Simulated scan of single mutants.
Amino acid sequence: MDVLIHVFVGLHIVGIGALLGGFFSQLKAARAGEARMIPAMLHGALTMLVTGVALVGLNQADDNSLNTVKIGVKLALLVVILGLVYVKRDEEKVESAVFGAVGALTTANIFIAVLWT
């Protein structure tokens, strides 16, 4: 079971890499006011959601202790990120505040994962 959990952790990291990488790839365009939500950002957020839910289930099945408050906070942030990216995915230009919020919430999600023990 540990190997399967580690595989899903790796996939979860790939998802956050796609989301954050998509954000970083649009920073130059954001400075010009022409940033957009690229497909990598949507796919990364969806990957994070699916693998995160799988990780909770796998850890519960393996009788590992879970911090449900931490999981709830991370899920809430991810739902907001996913909502923003999904709603704005077809727009040619996204407002700087919305684009910045996606980057800030993604970064907050990373720090919650790493620092909240």
Results as ranks from 00 to 15, higher is better:
2 D>W: 03
2 D>R: 04
3 V>M: 15
6 H>K: 11
6 H>P: 04
7 V>M: 11
11 L>K: 07
11 L>R: 01
13 I>S: 05
13 I>Q: 05
13 I>A: 07
14 V>K: 01
18 A>N: 12
19 L>M: 08
20 L>M: 15
21 G>H: 00
21 G>E: 07
21 G>P: 01
22 G>R: 03
23 F>L: 14
23 F>H: 12
24 F>R: 10
24 F>T: 06
26 Q>E: 03
29 A>K: 06
30 A>T: 02
32 A>S: 11
32 A>L: 05
33 G>L: 13
34 E>L: 05
34 E>F: 02
34 E>H: 08
34 E>A: 06
35 A>W: 09
35 A>M: 05
36 R>V: 14
36 R>A: 13
36 R>T: 06
37 M>C: 15
37 M>N: 08
38 I>F: 00
41 M>P: 11
42 L>A: 14
45 A>F: 05
45 A>Y: 00
46 L>T: 11
48 M>F: 01
50 V>Q: 05
51 T>A: 10
54 A>I: 12
54 A>S: 12
54 A>K: 10
61 A>M: 08
62 D>A: 10
63 D>F: 06
63 D>Y: 07
64 N>Q: 14
64 N>G: 11
64 N>R: 11
65 S>L: 06
66 L>A: 13
70 K>G: 13
72 G>W: 11
73 V>P: 09
74 K>Y: 04
78 L>H: 07
78 L>N: 09
79 V>H: 04
80 V>A: 02
82 L>G: 11
85 V>F: 11
85 V>C: 02
86 Y>K: 11
87 V>K: 05
92 E>N: 13
96 S>A: 14
97 A>G: 00
100 G>F: 09
101 A>H: 02
102 V>D: 07
102 V>I: 15
103 G>V: 03
103 G>Q: 09
103 G>I: 01
104 A>I: 08
106 T>Q: 06
108 A>K: 01
109 N>D: 08
109 N>W: 07
110 I>N: 00
110 I>T: 06
113 A>T: 11
114 V>A: 14
